[in-house]
């Protein structure tokens, strides 16, 4: 990341993409896709997050360690949510 300067054009493209995705996710929410509504909404959110981290937060130029730190955060959030849901999902089984 040291010294790497992206062009204004790159940033503008990402910014416009983010705005378009916001419009898309809002519009799609009004269409009945059944259970897919949640999936679409979260996928778009994940794409937006990736755009912001990779470009605006310069992660695509950053060190492996930074990427490891971010993966660690994601993994631990997953541990928190998945293991807790393991309780809630299996409560009705007995």
């Amino acid at each position: 990341m040291t010294g790497h300067i992206d062009s204004v054009k790159t940033y503008t493209t990402v910014w416009i993409a983010l705005l378009i995705l916001t419009a898309v996710t809002t519009t799609v929410a009004y269409v009945d896709l059944g259970p897919l509504n949640v999936v679409v909404a979260l996928t778009i959110a994940a794409v937006k997050m990736l755009l912001v981290t990779l470009f605006f937060m310069h992660v695509r130029h950053s060190t492996k360690l930074t990427k490891l730190v971010i993966s660690g955060a994601t993994l631990w959030l997953a541990i928190l949510i998945v293991l807790t849901l393991a309780d809630y999902i299996s409560r009705g089984w007995l």
Partner: peptide
């Protein structure tokens, strides 16, 4: 501080669909 600001943005990127866009098509 740029990193911090973008992070706060990312939180909202998730809050918006999760809070505002559940069930908009109106069952």
């Amino acid at each position: 501080i740029g990193l911090y600001w973008h992070f706060v943005d990312i939180v909202w990127i998730y809050l918006f669909p999760l809070l505002y866009l559940i069930d908009r098509h109106g069952v």
